[in-house]
Design a protein around this nucleic acid. Structure first.
Lengths: 245, 245
DNA sequence: TCTATTATACCGACCGACGGTCTATTCTCA
DNA sequence: TGAGAATAGACCGTCGGTCGGTATAATAGA
């Protein structure tokens, strides 16, 4: 095997890319280290030069996910025109938007993300994302409490609930994929839509707001996400986004 | 090695017992099949006579947990004297009681349950418990909606939220153990106590009840759970409960 | 009741694949 | 030119799982 030397950062990112693809398609446990290094075209030694273990690779992958997600919401946080409620809604809107885009651009990724064998991977990503987002949410809620918009005695607790709600859709979506038939999908869409309404009202009331203040997604947005697959069946977009890195 | 033949059900239960002990102390991934069969004193072949895989063993373990948990709340469901709110509170009280008892009798088990390496095990148990409890909760809430006690358009969603809240304490408790120092523990107790209050009010409002209707735990109950270790340091109770099977 | 037969419980050597280690080699750059 | 970063790949112990086989229990026919 010829020796190929690349810029370390590039090599590292490449490794993460291949690991991501393999972990998503086969699951963290089933995708072996040999698979990863074979895909990346490097040796065991080279791999262990960059990562201390397979576990560390997963860790780094989760961190990268969280970093990317965090980068997407920086502008919302910096916008001085927004009041706490507006900021919270903007944050929720951003994450909703990210979901729609992911679904449209890379349905396969979106779908594999919710398969049971990806539990470990999914949990790690969520963990990293939570750690990153929690302080932001707490700060927003605290500001809202200070200026009287929100009423609660436990901003950290409310922030946790917000994130819980965000992740809880996972189970419902997973069920939608588990079914498979169009009828199952239809039921799942309606269930999820109803659930989103419930979460909105729950958050309104937990924060002491009038019903209808919190907007997680406009009516029909769930259907937009779930049917994005049919609307955009061509894999070209996904391929393009892959090439462009 | 002499060949010992036991009643199949007994052998199966024994295997589950040893697996439970090893999975809890070392984690599902780190506890090897060889460890399990060595502890149980049987051969590989015997193991695979009872379980199709290590995964199936985990599955069976989770099922057993769920079955035991379910058995503990049957009387509450059958009590015709309770109205929906009373039934819901009784159910929450039962699960609280179970937690306190577990903490007092087998603190070690309680503690290991919340270690990060037990994520997979924990998740499976929760999954099984959720599957078992969800229908019960849905039924209670549906009854409450019918007789006008509760007001919600999504009983399934509310049931999910109730269970989410129940599991969410996991993260907070895990943090308490992660710290270790008495000061950390004190902070964790206060955080958890506050969180329980938040969950109570959140459920009140989600269900359209007056604040204070839902009772997850009386004030001080969290401290009772968390300090049970010190109050009952002797391992005799745990040993007794082990023997009695 | 005494076999013959089948079904069940059990044994342990063995397997391929896994994550991880180690030494050797080659490249880069001060 | 020498130090150290980057890469290669043989090698290791352990893992979950398989397999051919054996001992015991259960059943049936005579």
């Amino acid at each position: 095997m010829p020796r190929i030397i690349k810029h370390p950062e590039l090599r590292r990112e490449e490794l993460l890319d291949h690991a991501q693809a393999l972990f998503l398609t086969h699951g963290y446990d089933k995708a072996s280290l040999n698979d990863v290094i074979a895909a990346a075209g490097i040796s065991k030694g080279a791999f262990y030069h960059y990562f201390a273990s397979k576990e560390a690779l997963l860790e780094a992958l989760a961190e990268r996910f969280a970093r990317q997600a965090l980068a997407g919401v920086q502008d919302v946080l910096g916008d001085p025109a927004l009041d706490p409620l507006g900021r919270l809604n903007a944050l929720l809107a951003k994450s909703r938007q990210a979901k729609v885009e992911t679904a449209a651009e890379a349905w396969a990724l979106f779908e594999t993300m919710f398969r049971p064998e990806n539990l470990v991977l999914f949990h790690r990503i969520n963990q990293a994302a939570s750690a990153a987002f929690s302080p932001l949410l707490v700060e927003i809620i605290r500001q809202g409490v200070e200026d009287g918009t929100f009423r609660t005695f436990d901003p950290e607790g409310v922030a946790d609930i917000v994130m819980q709600f965000g992740m809880a859709t996972h189970g419902v979506i997973a069920k939608a994929f588990a079914g498979g038939s169009d009828a199952d999908m239809e039921i799942a869409i309606e269930t999820l839509e109803k659930r989103v309404r419930l979460y909105e009202i729950a958050l309104d009331r937990i924060l002491g707001l009038p019903d209808g203040s919190i907007r997680i997604g406009e009516p029909g947005y769930v259907r937009a996400v779930m049917t994005a697959r049919r609307a955009n069946p061509s894999p070209s977009a996904a391929a393009a986004s892959r090439k462009s890195r």
